[in-house]
Computed example of a mutant assay.
Amino acid sequence: MQQQHAAPSRIAQLGAAAGLAVAAGAGAVAYGAFIERHWFALREESLAILPSGSAPFTVLHLSDIHLSLGQHKKTDWLRGLAALAPDLVVNTGDNLSHPKAIAPLLDALGPLMDFPGVFVPGSNDYFAPTFKNPFTYFTGPSKVPAGDIKRRPVELDTEALHAGFGAGGWVNLTNRAQSIPLKGIRFDFSGVDDPHLNRERYAGWPRGAVGQDSAPHVKIAVAHAPYQRVLDHFTADGADLILAGHTHGGQVCLPGYGALVSNCDLPTWRAKGLNDWQAKGRTTPVNVSAGIGTSRTAPFRFACRPEAVILTLTAKP
C-alpha cells in the first residue's frame, strides 16, 4: 500500500514564505550596500542648444559625491573621469559625508580641476549628515529652515572646501552670476545656494557688455536641489539648460516603476535623467543627476546606480 504524505500545514507554508521574504530582503540590502553603491556609471546625453555653427561641447555633471573616509573605489573612479577631457565640469553640491573628507575629495577631483569648472553647494557641504527616520521621506518634501542647525549639529569647513575648488580654478556660483568664454562660446551662468536649506537668492544673468543679449551665448542655471520654484524661476528667466542633483535618483527604486521619493517637491518620475520643464510659456531641459554617493546613514542603493553625467552640447539645427 502506497504511503500518503500529509500536506504541509498552513502555518508551515506561511513560515516558509516569511523565511524566503526575509532572505530576499537581506539579499537585496546586501546587494545595495556592497555591490550597487560601488557600481559607478556614466550616463551620456546630447542636447542641441549651442549657437548655430558651434562645435560640440562636453559638460561633465557631478553631484552628491558624499565622500567619507576610506572610500577608495569612489575616489579612484573620480580621478579616472579626467580621461573624458570635458570642456566644462559642473558640480552641483553635497560633496561631503565626513568633516575630514575635504582633503581626500580635493585630491580625487584634482585631475578634473585641469578643466574649467563651476560649482554650487548642497546642505552636506555645510553640515555633516545625521540619522533620519527614513519613513519621513514619504511624508512630503523635507526642508530645513535657513539658519536651523539643530538637525545638522556638525558644521563642515565649507570655506576650506570652496577655497580648494577656487584654487583649482573652479568658479563659485553660490547666489552669483558670471560669464565664462569657452571654446569660442560665451556661457552665462546663474547659480543659487541650496534651495533645500531655503538659501537660494537669484542673481539673474551676467550683465555688462553692450548688446550682449543679441550676441551668441548659452544660459546655464545651476542649483543643488531641483525644487519646482527654482525650476520655474530659471525656466521663466530664459535658461537654456538647468543642472541639479540632490534626489539621488530616489536611491532605492522599484524595478519597472522607479523612484519612490525625490526628497523635494519634484515628481518622482523626474528624480533622475534629462527632462523638459515648462513655466510661463517657456521650456527648458533639466538634467537631474542620480548622484555618485549615498548618505553615511543610508549606505546603499537599489535599482539606481551611482552616476556622473556627460552631456554633449551641439549646435541648434
Rank of each mutant, 00 (worst) to 15 (best):
S52H: 10
F119L: 14
P134R: 05
D276H: 05
L96W: 13
Q3Y: 07
G15C: 10
P255K: 06
K150Q: 14
F300R: 08
S68W: 04
R79T: 02
H162T: 07
I185H: 12
D76P: 01
T75E: 07
R282K: 11
D148Y: 04
S179F: 05
L50M: 09
D76N: 11
A83F: 00
F57N: 00
A16P: 03
S54T: 11
V154D: 06
A26G: 13
G53S: 08
A160L: 13
N275A: 11
D157N: 15
T158S: 05
L266V: 02
E45C: 09
A177G: 14
N287T: 08
R229T: 03
F302K: 05
G93Y: 05
F187R: 10
A279R: 01
V120Q: 04
P121M: 14
L156M: 08
S63G: 10
A259Y: 03
L96V: 03
A82L: 01
K219M: 07
F135C: 02
G256S: 09
G27V: 08
G291I: 03
T284S: 00
P255V: 13
P285F: 00
Q251Y: 06
G169C: 06
P267Y: 00
Q3E: 15
F302C: 09
G80A: 14
A308H: 07
S289D: 10
G27I: 09
H246F: 05
I310D: 02
R43L: 07
R270F: 04
G245W: 01
G238P: 13
N175W: 06
H162S: 12
D148C: 01
S52M: 11
N91K: 02
F234V: 00
D114K: 09
T247D: 01
A24H: 07
A163P: 02
I242F: 08
R199A: 09
T247N: 00
I292W: 06
H66N: 06
T130K: 04
Q278R: 09
A33P: 03
T75H: 12
G117T: 13
T284F: 00
N198M: 12
H72V: 10
K150H: 13
P145C: 12
V90M: 12
G191C: 13
L254V: 15
Y257Q: 06
S97G: 15
P267A: 02
P111T: 02
I220A: 01
L14R: 13
P195G: 04
S97H: 11
A203M: 09
A128S: 12
P99Y: 07
S97Q: 11
P86S: 12
P306F: 10
V210D: 10
R305Y: 10
Y202E: 04
